[in-house]
C-alpha cells in the first residue's frame, strides 16, 4: 500500500478567512496524504480547522475563504493550480462529501429518489432509467429498502437520512469520500449502525476516505490512519495504533486522557486547561504552548519542526525525544492542573 500513489496528497495547504477582525489563517501549512483504500481520521477540537480542510478538498469553501497556498494533488494532479473546470469535474465523480447533518442537506420538497437520480443524471450522464436502477442498488448497499425511494426526507429517521447521504456520496463511484462528523448527531445504536455501514462499504469497495471527527473512539473503531490538528496545524499523524497508543505530542496525550472509557472510567479524567489561541493574532512558537504542561522556554519562541519517525509517523514537538517520559507524566492529573 505504501508504494502506491496516494489518492490524495495535501502539501503545505493554507486557508484564510477574511473577517471583521482581520485575516484569520484557519489552516496553516498542513500536509498529509490519503493512501488508497484507507480511512483517514482527521481529529481535533472545534475551530482547529478540520472542517475547513475537508471543505477545501471539495473546493466548496465559504465565500470569505480562500486557499492561500499549497497543493491538493488528486491522483498526482494539483487541483489548486489546475483549471477550475477540472476541479468542478472532479466533484461528485472523484471526490464526494457526506455532510455533518444529513437532516438539513436533503431538500424537503423533493422525493429522496429523485434527489439521488438528479446527481446520477446531471453529474453522471446516466439516463433516467439507468439512474433509477442505480439508485435502488445504492439504497440496498447502505441497508435501506429501495421501496422507499419515493418517500420524502421527513419520512426518514435521522439514521436513515445519514444512510441516504452516504448513498448519495457513493453514487458515482468516487475515489475519495470525505465525511464530516457523519455520526455526531446520532444516538449510540444508530451511530454504531452507520459506522458499520461505512466499515462494510470501505471493505467491499475499497473506498478511500477522510473522516472528520472530534471523537477518538470513532477513530479507534474505524480508521487506519489519523491526523491530529490543533489551531490550524497538524501536530501529529501516523497509523491509528501508533498515534493512540504511543502519542508523541502532548496535545494528543491530553486528548487520549480526557476521553471517558466505559471499562476504565473509574479513574479520574484528565482535562486540558485553557482554550485554543486566537488565530487572528500573530502567533510565535508552538501553538499548544500556553496549555502545555511540558513547555520549555524554546516552545514560546520557536516553531517546532515536524519530525518523521521510521514508521512514517510525524510529530511537531520540541520535546519529542522525551516522549516516553512525558507520556508517563501526562497520565497524572496533577501534571495538567495549574493555579487559576
Amino acid at each position: 500500500m505504501a508504494d502506491q500513489q496516494p489518492v490524495l496528497e495535501i502539501r503545505d495547504l493554507s486557508v484564510e478567512y477574511r473577517t471583521a477582525r482581520g485575516v484569520v489563517r484557519a489552516v496553516d501549512g498542513i500536509s498529509f496524504s490519503v493512501p488508497k483504500g484507507a480511512i483517514l481520521g482527521l481529529v481535533g477540537e472545534s475551530g482547529c480547522g478540520k472542517t475547513t480542510v475537508a471543505r477545501s478538498i471539495t473546493g466548496v469553501l465559504h465565500q470569505s475563504a480562500r486557499i492561500a497556498g499549497g497543493e491538493l494533488l488528486l491522483h498526482g494532479r494539483d487541483l489548486v493550480s489546475g483549471p477550475p473546470k477540472a476541479w468542478l469535474d472532479a466533484r461528485w465523480r472523484e471526490i464526494s462529501f457526506v455532510p455533518q447533518s444529513a437532516m438539513n442537506s436533503l431538500d424537503p420538497v423533493y422525493r429522496i429518489g429523485s434527489q439521488i437520480e438528479e446527481v446520477l443524471v446531471h453529474r453522471g450522464g446516466k439516463t433516467r432509467a439507468e439512474a433509477r436502477a442505480r439508485a435502488s442498488a445504492l439504497f440496498e448497499m447502505v441497508g435501506l429498502n429501495p421501496g422507499r425511494l419515493d418517500e420524502y426526507p421527513h419520512q426518514f429517521s435521522g439514521g436513515m437520512r445519514q444512510r441516504v447521504a452516504i448513498a448519495l456520496a457513493l453514487a458515482l463511484n468516487p475515489s475519495l469520500v470525505i465525511a464530516d462528523e457523519p455520526v455526531t448527531a446520532l444516538d449510540v445504536i444508530v451511530q454504531r449502525q452507520i459506522l458499520d455501514v461505512i466499515r462494510d462499504l470501505q471493505q467491499r469497495l475499497s473506498l478511500s476516505m477522510i473522516l472528520v471527527t472530534h471523537d477518538i473512539s470513532v477513530v479507534a473503531y474505524l480508521c487506519d490512519q489519523v491526523v491530529v490538528m490543533y489551531a490550524g496545524r497538524v501536530v501529529e499523524s501516523g497509523s491509528t495504533r501508533e498515534v493512540l497508543e504511543q502519542p508523541r505530542h502532548p496535545y494528543t496525550m491530553g486528548l487520549t486522557n480526557a476521553f471517558p472509557d466505559l471499562e476504565s472510567a473509574a479513574h479520574e479524567l484528565v482535562p486540558i486547561d485553557g482554550s485554543p489561541p486566537d488565530l487572528s493574532q500573530p502567533l510565535v512558537g508552538c501553538r499548544f504552548q500556553p496549555r502545555c504542561p511540558f513547555s520549555l522556554p524554546v516552545c514560546s519562541s520557536d516553531d517546532p519542526r515536524t519530525e518523521v519517525a521510521e514508521t512514517g509517523a510525524r510529530f511537531a514537538c520540541h520535546r519529542h525525544a522525551e516522549s516516553d517520559l512525558l507520556r508517563r507524566h501526562s497520565r497524572d492529573i496533577a501534571t495538567w492542573q495549574r493555579p487559576q
Binding site: 439514521g159 445504536i189 454504531r192 466499515r199 473512539s217 479507534a220 473503531y221 466505559l262 471499562e263
Partner: peptide, 24 residues
C-alpha cells in the same frame, strides 16, 4: 446489552461484534 455493545471505545483493539439489535 445493545447500548453497551454499540459504544466504540478509544482504544485500537476493540471487539467488532455485530450489534445484537435490528431496526429503529
Amino acid at each position: 446489552r445493545a447500548l453497551v455493545n454499540a459504544v466504540p471505545v478509544p482504544r485500537v483493539d476493540q471487539s467488532h461484534e455485530a450489534l445484537p439489535i435490528i431496526g429503529n
